[in-house]
Design a protein around this nucleic acid. Structure first.
Lengths: 232, 232, 232, 232
DNA sequence: CATGAATGAGTCTTCATTCAT
DNA sequence: CATGAATGAAGACTCATTCAT
């Protein structure tokens, strides 16, 4: 690299602002370079500081990337819409799945980074990501547990496995998109997952009442769709 | 003009043996360093040769790793037990899932390498791994497709999604194990997956169900009519 | 994660000074190793820095060598004495040749490097060296062209060929010196070249010559007629 | 590189044949790769032998290349047409220049190799090439010396300088062609060189006789051209 | 003799990290 | 505090040369 001609002027900013700049720069590099060939020089350049400055805010490269992505991810899942007022097990399930798919759709870079860089690490379960994910997936586990407890769902499959099934399917369905080649249909995917899980867990011979519950839920979905339609 | 090739530390071996040594060394490094950086120096050292020798057998690092892992993986899935003589959809499904889990259980390192290093690449779908995986997962897709065709399964979920669900769940259930921390129960996991998928896809029992289906269908027709009305 | 940058052996220098050091080191290696392989390790060592430091100032080896030699050459030909106030074609010619010989005499290493490393490249005509040389040799071409135009020189030899003749002779006469074995006499060489070129191009003295020219022209006409005849 | 599948079968050839194969292979590589990136592996492959075998015939790479090119060059200049029966200084001069240009035209690769790899070496004057070149250029030096002695040429320019002038101009005029970009007109170039040198060396005020000599020679050329014409 | 697998010193290049300024 | 020049260890890769077979 040539000797730089122009001096990077970044005269004394409030530390928080500086950190924000660096974080933003790091995010943009991560988003572009995916998981490989992320260089501190580039992050520094985009942040308008020099390499050395990065070390005032982060221990080292590893810590920096993890920290930046953690904040990013936290931000994302904190802004996720609540599904509290959705009624019925199927609807709730579907809503939660949809929500997870939406996060991936909107944030492929950070998702890819977490899936390829963070999760495979043996220390993963000690990371903030693990905790964030638990909180985020706990909804689904809880929902399943409740359905089992209430007798709506069978008892012979653990909520843990259901969670793995749901999130595993979500991941698997989105890999092509994460790879940057291809796309996935949020609604159909959410429907499919919800259907298989719901039906697969429902107690076997549905009494009339139980079936009616399903009917009601499906009709509720129709009503909600109509509402959306009306808003346009 | 050049360095002399002075002492021959590793005596001449039959080429196949040497290649096997290098391959074995590469596998062991991959198994250990999985996610970290794999260095040719280390592979050479373990194989008891110098770095230059690696280039007699492989074009370059990339080609070497891919080639080694591809052979490894090919070996694994070629030795997999057949499920042809298993009878019944559930049994077949369960057997296939079990088989996949067994592969992971027995080969965590290569699995982890493929999942973290190969699959995320944007060229993944052009790789041999993709083809191997397709062949390997085609059994399940075919099984589901047949069950749908024969009327045993419903038609409202695509075999693709079912495949994603099954393999996604398998992966998700085994991550802790792949990371080297924790284990997973093969039989229970296989049971659970087979159950949820099978039940979730099974056409309901004709008896009482048929009536209810009729009801649902009629109501759905009403809903759809309302939708059409709303659009105007 | 990476090697520590432990002891600073070469203290921080003003960038221009460091660049100058590197450039000087590169020049000295080029001068010595001329035709052999030039290694960055050696340049770095002589400059008192590590190899990596070179990359702060140059893109890569190729760019570095070309850049260093180009600056070197530019320096040389910019300091060359003007021949503007020399009067007379022969005098001018002789002065220009002398000047070129002097440059070679004073800068054998860079000359040798350009002649052996740069000029044979197929991209030579796109290089800065080509441009520098053109500017530098344009004086001679222009002088010849003017002499031809003014009638002082004959018209039957192109200025291009004259230029090739002059510079070709200069090169050829100096190869032993460039090789480091032998020397060449600047003044005699310049005289000789100027003489042969000048006399060889000068229109003959009108007197007796004119008559003979007439004879020749008439005979040539006969010959040409014969040729035409033969062709039929 | 991959392990070779096919074995290079070259079962015991007469040594001379083997050497010829290697020489031919080396020539073809030199012709293609110009002066850089000539690898022994490639030469061996083309010769149908293994690298090791090369060392039975040549000391090392350097010696091999030099030896191969020397034979090549010897061959070329031994097959060059004689100019003995050409009469007259100008005609002889022109013929010799033409001959040299023809060699370059017909053998650009070996020429380029010699000019860039051999001649710049400090040991050049000890090489066979130097001797070959001397023999080859001695004709011209001798011609000039004779012309000087006979009083046809002036005495104030050394035959050495004339030789440098001629060969230097030849080289300079052919660089673009040697580089692989461009071409040069043999006849015009030969004419130009012969003219400038001849006229430049001719004693100043040509007496009638001397001028007549020039006339005669020019007419001889016309006659020879007519002969050629007649042969067609 | 011929083989060709193996050598090993060398090539250029990258970049996270440090610390004198 | 911020700078950014310098580090230095590691990276992948090349290839003329050798010698056990």
């Amino acid at each position: 690299m040539r000797a730089k001609a122009k001096t990077r002027t970044s005269s004394r900013l409030p530390p928080l602002q500086r950190r924000a700049d660096i974080t933003a720069a790091a995010r943009s590099v991560i988003a572009e370079k995916g998981h490989e060939n992320i260089s501190l020089a580039e992050i520094a350049q985009r942040a308008g500081v020099v390499e050395g400055t990065l070390y005032r805010f982060f221990e080292n490269k590893q810590e920096m990337l993890v920290s930046v992505v953690a904040d990013w991810y936290k931000e994302i899942i904190e802004n996720v819409a609540s599904v509290e007022d959705v009624q019925g097990t199927w609807n709730k399930l579907r809503a939660m799945v949809w929500r997870a798919l939406k996060i991936i759709k909107d944030n492929p870079e950070v998702t890819r980074f977490i899936l390829t860089k963070i999760r495979p690490e043996s220390v993963y379960t000690n990371t903030i990501f693990y905790k964030l994910n638990r909180r985020y997936s706990a909804d689904i586990s809880r929902l399943c547990a409740q359905a089992i407890e209430s007798g709506e769902f069978r008892e012979d499959v653990s909520p843990i496995l259901l969670r793995d099934m749901i999130f595993g399917c979500i991941e698997h369905s989105t890999w092509a998109y994460l790879r940057g080649s291809g796309d996935f249909p949020i609604d159909e995917t959410a429907d499919g997952i919800a259907n298989v899980i719901y039906r697969g867990m429902l107690k076997e011979q549905p009494a009339a009442q139980e079936t009616m519950d399903g009917v009601v839920e499906r009709l509720e979905k129709v009503a909600s769709d109509l509402e959306k339609l009306a808003k346009k």
